[in-house]
């Protein structure tokens, strides 16, 4: 019974949050100084077709009815038509989303692989110089403009040292050579058995995902440190030490294992922020994902595309927040 009630509360919360998001995008769409009728018809429309289009778009209805209509459209997967590509926005978004997903996933792995050991190391050396050094590195990471770091990385590793490939997902030569099955170039290349393209795509991923991953290293490290400190105070740690276990076993085997659950939620949360943070990274690395799609639409005042993209990022963001919450409850018996 309590589980059911809690599940229901959760559902209502999520529904309210999504509705709030819809309200915000709807209102943004209303205050835009772009006439949706003219952007659909072109500015040489006569008065009759103008009025007809206005009725067709529902713009003569009261605001709350327009909002209900908008919610209904979105629930049916209708995000409007992009002025720029003259395709349905949802279709466009689904086409570009895998690129962002690929980038954010690798970046989250980078963040976890660097952040967790750094946090453990800082906790074990609490108050000594490695702790301070990791804290300072975290502050540095939080202070650097990510798009600038991307440009500088391209300058150094691509232009000067020639260690990394340039912008884009694969070399121009390979562009469009594998069929987009999943939309993830690395996976598609493997499916097609094209190892050359796979390695090329991996090479292209290294720089942008490393830069984007730095974004969440500091956060993951700080949270890991906090969780570890809580664990290292516990009595079972003392017991393990008294038993004569090596410090490595105690820290990495016992303490770390007990913080897996909160860590998973932290990684899920940073994954959500990575999806969002990829906007600027995609711009710098000409990465054809959702972020680049939104910014390009913004610059050409294609509001349907902007708001549709915002809505999708927002929904995924909310879903990941929810998922981390659910995972926590499922995996941690104390939270049940």
């Amino acid at each position: 019974m309590p589980t059911l009630k809690r599940g229901l509360t959760l559902l209502v919360t999520v529904a309210a949050t999504l509705l709030g998001l819809l309200l915000v995008t709807f209102l943004i769409g209303r205050v835009v100084p772009i006439d949706p009728v003219l952007s659909a018809l072109g500015d040489r429309a006569n008065a009759d077709s103008y009025a007809q289009m206005r009725t067709q778009l529902g713009l003569d209805l009261p605001l709350w009815q327009q909002f209900l209509r908008y919610v209904g459209d979105v629930l049916q997967g209708d995000l409007g038509t992009s002025v720029l590509t003259s395709r349905p926005v949802l279709e466009d978004v689904l086409r570009v989303f895998p690129a962002t997903l690929e980038l954010a996933t690798v970046a989250a792995i980078v963040g976890a692989v660097l952040g967790i050991p750094a946090g453990v190391f800082a906790a074990v050396n609490r108050g000594r110089w490695p702790d301070h050094a990791i804290r300072l590195l975290g502050l540095l990471g939080h202070s650097v403009p990510i798009f600038w770091l991307g440009l500088m990385a391209l300058l150094l590793f691509y232009a000067k040292l020639d260690w990394a490939p340039g912008p884009g997902r694969v070399d121009v030569f390979y562009e469009g050579m594998v069929d987009p099955v999943t939309g993830l170039v690395t996976v598609d290349a493997l499916l097609a058995g094209e190892t050359d393209i796979f390695w090329n795509a991996v090479g292209h991923l290294v720089l942008p995902s490393a830069i984007l991953g730095l974004y969440c290293v500091a956060y993951i490290a700080r949270m890991t440190r906090g969780f570890m400190l809580d664990q290292l105070r516990q009595e079972y740690i003392t017991t393990a030490r008294v038993k004569g276990l090596s410090e490595t076993r105690v820290v990495w085997g016992h303490a770390l294992r007990n913080i897996t659950v909160p860590l998973i939620t932290v990684i899920a949360l940073s994954y959500a922020s990575l999806l969002e943070g990829s906007v600027l990274t995609e711009m710098v690395f000409a990465w054809p994902g959702l972020g680049l799609y939104i910014t390009n639409s913004l610059l050409s005042a294609d509001m349907n595309a902007v708001l549709g993209g915002t809505l999708v990022v927002g929904a995924v963001f909310i879903a990941l927040n929810l998922l981390s919450d659910l995972l926590y409850r499922l995996l941690d018996p104390r939270a049940r």
């Binding site: 919360t13 969002e276 906007v279 509001m303 902007v306 708001l307 993209g309 990022v313 927002g314």
Partner: peptide, 18 residues
């Protein structure tokens, strides 16, 4: 809470666009 669950940067982008 609802506002906290929104992606900030993307929303800021959309606001500026509007």
């Amino acid at each position: 809470d609802i506002a906290l669950a929104f992606p900030k940067l993307i929303l800021a982008l959309a606001f500026v666009a509007a």
